[in-house]
């Protein structure tokens, strides 16, 4: 049996081939099944140590990686920015070298600077998995989104996926765009012109600033969280105005085809980018995304961590 995988790191979706993406998704199918067993734990990474190194705060991604690693029988250590020596002035490289000297086999890194995972991957023998770097990429989020679309719609090829929100600062959007295009989807980005500039069209996607025109033609709508903490006034119209222009209200949700999936990477701002009733409605697959995230991260850790070093 052949594998389509020979990378020790997962740094982004951009550098992956369609075959590699599909191979991760197929591997995730097998790990999703493990979640239905009486004992939801397999020995695949027994004896390996995984370090969850989250320099930027995150709860859901860290927990998902931690659970994924536990289910693969790896030992897990969590380090946050405030508890690490980074707070004492140590450089990222030195901290990472110390982690490696402690025999970390896999380092899962969340960092506010784009390129930080790549910086480590080039310098360490350990596997490095990018859990979000600045506004650059968040590959496992894109993979779990792709997995959920494929699971619910049976395919990705030729589907029309609409991504709504702050695209300019979103690593989730970037990773999704790369993955969706590689797998043959049509992608439309929707949002205020300051956050969704026309320049994105050079990637091969459509750009629109009128959500009501686009929703009736969507197979999937992926709503990104409005990151208040990162918004600057010059880019963002204000929360009330954003909801009025781009929020998926229950009135607007009536424009959608009944089969259209509603996705959100979480955490949700209810009443801002999505109405509560829509988030909890029958078309919403938001919680499936969380469940699938676990399977996808097990697949990624198995593939990167299982490569002989």
């Amino acid at each position: 049996m052949s594998t389509n995988w020979n990378r020790k790191d997962l740094l982004g979706i951009r550098e992956l081939s369609a075959d590699e993406i599909n191979f991760i998704l197929e591997t995730a199918d097998a790990f999703k099944q493990v979640g239905t067993r009486e004992i939801k734990k397999v020995p695949a990474l027994r004896g390996k140590t995984l370090i969850n190194f989250f320099v930027e705060p995150s709860t859901r991604t860290r927990i998902s990686f931690e659970l994924a690693a536990s289910r693969l029988s790896a030992d897990v250590i969590n380090i946050s920015a405030s508890s690490s020596s980074l707070a004492k002035g140590e450089t990222l490289k030195d901290t990472a070298k110390v982690l490696e000297a402690n025999h970390a086999d896999i380092i899962v890194l969340r960092h506010s600077s784009a390129g930080a995972p790549q910086f480590l991957a080039q310098r360490l023998r350990s596997s490095v998995v990018n859990a979000g770097d600045g506004a650059h990429e968040h590959p496992t989020q894109a993979l779990l989104d792709l997995y959920t679309i494929r699971e619910k719609r049976g395919r990705i090829d030729n589907l029309h996926v609409v991504i709504v929100g702050d695209i300019l600062f979103s690593r989730v959007a970037r990773s999704n765009i790369f993955g969706l295009l590689k797998l043959g989807a049509k992608v439309t980005l929707v949002g205020p012109s300051t956050l969704v500039p026309r320049e994105f069209e050079t990637l091969g996607v459509n750009v629109s600033h009128k959500i009501d025109d686009i929703l009736p033609r969507a197979d999937v709508v992926n709503l990104l969280r409005i990151q208040h903490e990162r918004q600057r006034k010059e880019y963002f119209p204000g929360i009330g105005e954003y909801t009025r222009l781009f929020g998926l209200t229950k009135e607007r949700a009536r424009l959608l085809h009944p089969d259209c999936l509603i996705m959100h990477p979480g955490p949700i701002n209810r009443g801002v980018e999505i109405d509560s009733e829509v988030a909890d409605g029958p078309q919403s697959v938001i919680l499936d995304q969380v469940t699938n995230g676990l399977a996808v991260r097990m697949a990624v850790l198995y593939l990167c961590g299982g490569i002989a070093s």
């Binding site: 049996m1 020995p43 002989a308």
Partner: peptide, 25 residues
């Protein structure tokens, strides 16, 4: 599927492909 239950992962040049297991419960 036995791939994720093998004891030689990381010692072989190639990673075994995993498949979903299905058993009655």
């Amino acid at each position: 599927d036995v791939a994720m239950h093998r004891d030689d992962i990381g010692t072989r040049p190639e990673l075994p492909v995993v498949h979903a297991s299905t058993l009655p419960t």
